[in-house]
Design a protein around this nucleic acid. Structure first.
Lengths: 121, 121
DNA sequence: CCTACAGTGAGTCACATGGCTAACAATCAA
DNA sequence: TTGATTGTTAGCCATGTGACTCACTGTAGG
């Protein structure tokens, strides 16, 4: 659980950077070598390398060495947990909103009844 | 779109901190005053305040002053975008994985056919 | 009016983060 | 073997972040 917390910390932190989200999007489409990822990026290679390491450390991405290239690709399991956390939060509080809405509607109904009574009187 | 990117940056960054995720979970259950949120937190009030500001700045939370208290609550729309981004990434790359799997299965099938041929021979 | 309560603002500090350059592997291709 | 290609490591720097304290404001209640 504490482990889980740390994992969420790292995944969210990893995704908080636009460069890293770009990498994720590229890799979602297809695995790529570091050099391919580097091409359109407006930064030095070592900087990109660091970003890749961050993604690797939090488990979003795996890499392996093939000849002198390093191939990066997404790890299928990685977003599950994060995604789960987000959906859960959303569902919890949207449920609360629904209850609230129902409550408000209930109040309005009473209001209407009162109005009718007033009118009848 | 650039705006969108910034929003994602901020939401992910906000959620990358365990204290702030705790606040979000508390507020998902029910709106609370700053003091209520503060009670179980192992930190100084101004520190907590800063976290609340971060959540407010990225749109996850709204606050309003009621008397001398400040009431905080979740904003329903806020996670939509983030959630959408995550699901999209997942679906894109899971689709890719499915295709890959299908491809691998295809290969295996060919393998099997070859094996059968060999055996027949 | 005065006191206690609930925040708030300003300023400090240690450390993490994202960027850079420069020098160093490791591997492929001629 | 030698040169070009593709990373990789180390180290530097500016900025951002999360934590703190201390002094302050605004509101409620007696």
């Amino acid at each position: 659980m504490a482990n889980n917390q740390l994992a969420l910390d790292r995944v969210f932190h990893a995704l908080a950077d636009p460069t890293r989200r770009t990498i994720v999007m590229r890799l979602s489409a297809e695995p790529s070598a570091v050099g391919d990822l580097f091409q359109p990026m407006p930064m030095a290679l070592p900087t990109l390398l660091k970003h890749i390491r961050v993604l690797e450390d939090c488990g979003l991405v795996t890499t392996r060495k093939v000849g002198r290239e390093r191939i990066c690709e997404m790890r299928p399991e990685a977003l599950r947990e994060t995604d789960a956390w987000l959906s859960q939060q959303r569902s919890v509080w949207e449920a609360r909103l629904d209850r609230m809405e129902a409550h408000v509607l209930g109040l309005q109904e009473k209001e209407n009844k009162n109005d009718k009574r007033k009118k009848r009187k």
